[in-house]
């Protein structure tokens, strides 16, 4: 099953390289087509895979460490606080290259705020963390709304940005994100068993030898950093982090040793597919924001799973 899925993923990667505004025959490509393939299409496909994996991985970790099947980049405030920086950068007309940096900046500020708010007596409380995240979300959204209201000329840019998409992709950004993904993935898989213990109540996990508080903090910080980096480059792409871990759990069990891998893989698969659709659904080179497609694809699939095998997602 694992091999099959990896094979399917690689096949999708290859196939989606050939889908886009211009159909490219890889065996008879003109120089310009070859260049489009190598310097635009390929990095973009790989980038969508990396971002999808980042979102899937962060969702998987969020849901377990925050003990909430609805935890994802939205409920923790990570997505909207990152979006805030980008929106302000667009509204003030900063050069395009500075947009991801601004997004990362506010994303990290949001992370620290939520983290400190949810820490009482040096103990991280998962429920407080979600509450703090939701509050962060509300505050960031209100500032974003203000920016949309006040900077009318930037309105369409802001709206398009918020819908998510792979705007400008080059190899250096791709390498940066891939490095962030790889490091976090290795950090998480090295602690997969520890993370499993977080499925138990806090006292049981602690007496099994897990420093619950420290593990939860580390996991939260890394997961949020993943989201901040992803959002800063692609805008807000929802539902991947929420749905993919549940699907992975339903198909391959809850064990984090499996779930970390499959959440990343399925996240990558979903986003590669969604981006291929967004690139090609409108003929002539126009694009549909990818966030719309992930929400639609993911939502419909989730509904199907919810009806057919709900008990495998979470109890209740």
């Amino acid at each position: 099953m694992k091999k099959l899925l990896v094979g399917l993923f690689l096949l999708t990667l290859g196939a989606s390289c050939l889908i886009g505004a211009t159909a490219i025959n890889p065996f008879a490509a003109s120089p310009i087509e070859r260049d489009i393939l190598l310097s635009l299409r390929l990095p973009r496909v790989l980038f969508s895979a990396v971002i999808g994996a980042m979102l899937g991985l962060s969702g998987s970790v969020y849901q377990l460490t925050l003990k909430n099947p609805l935890a994802d980049s939205f409920t923790t405030g990570a997505a909207s606080s990152s979006a805030l920086g980008a929106v302000l950068a667009i509204a003030f007309g900063l050069p395009v290259a500075l947009v991801p940096i601004a997004a990362l900046g506010t994303g990290l500020i949001g992370l620290i705020t939520v983290y400190r708010l949810s820490k009482t007596n040096n103990v991280i409380n998962p429920v407080t963390m979600i509450l703090a995240g939701v509050v962060m979300n509300i505050i960031a959204s209100s500032v974003i709304s203000f920016a949309k209201y006040f900077f009318e000329d930037a309105l369409s840019s802001i709206v398009f940005w918020l819908m998510g998409g792979f705007f400008v992709v080059d190899w250096s950004k791709l390498l940066l994100c891939a490095a962030v993904l790889l490091i976090s993935y290795l950090l998480f898989t090295g602690r997969a068993l520890h993370l499993n213990m977080l499925a138990l109540d806090e006292h049981s996990a602690q007496t099994l030898g897990v420093n619950v508080n420290r593990l939860r903090s580390i996991a939260f910080v890394i997961a949020t950093a993943l989201v901040a980096v992803a959002v800063s480059h692609t805008g807000v792409i929802g539902f991947v982090g929420l749905i993919v871990p549940h699907v992975a759990r339903g198909l391959f069990g809850s064990d984090m040793k499996q779930n970390l891998f499959f959440s990343s893989l399925l996240g990558a698969l979903l986003l590669v597919l969604a981006d291929a659709v967004s690139r090609s659904i409108i003929p002539g080179g126009a694009e549909l924001p990818v966030g719309i497609i992930t929400a639609l694809l993911g939502g419909v699939f989730f509904l199907y799973l919810l009806r057919t095998r709900r008990e495998r997602f979470w109890h209740g």
């Binding site: 310009i32 087509e33 900063l94 000329d153 840019s157 409108i282 080179g285 694009e287 549909l288």
Partner: peptide, 26 residues
Amino acid sequence: LRFNPEAVLSSQPDVYIWQVGPMNQH
């Protein structure tokens, strides 16, 4: 409309006009 950068390349325009103003500040 939202446009794909690779479609810009493949459509091979002769002239690329870029506007600067409130909508496209810097």
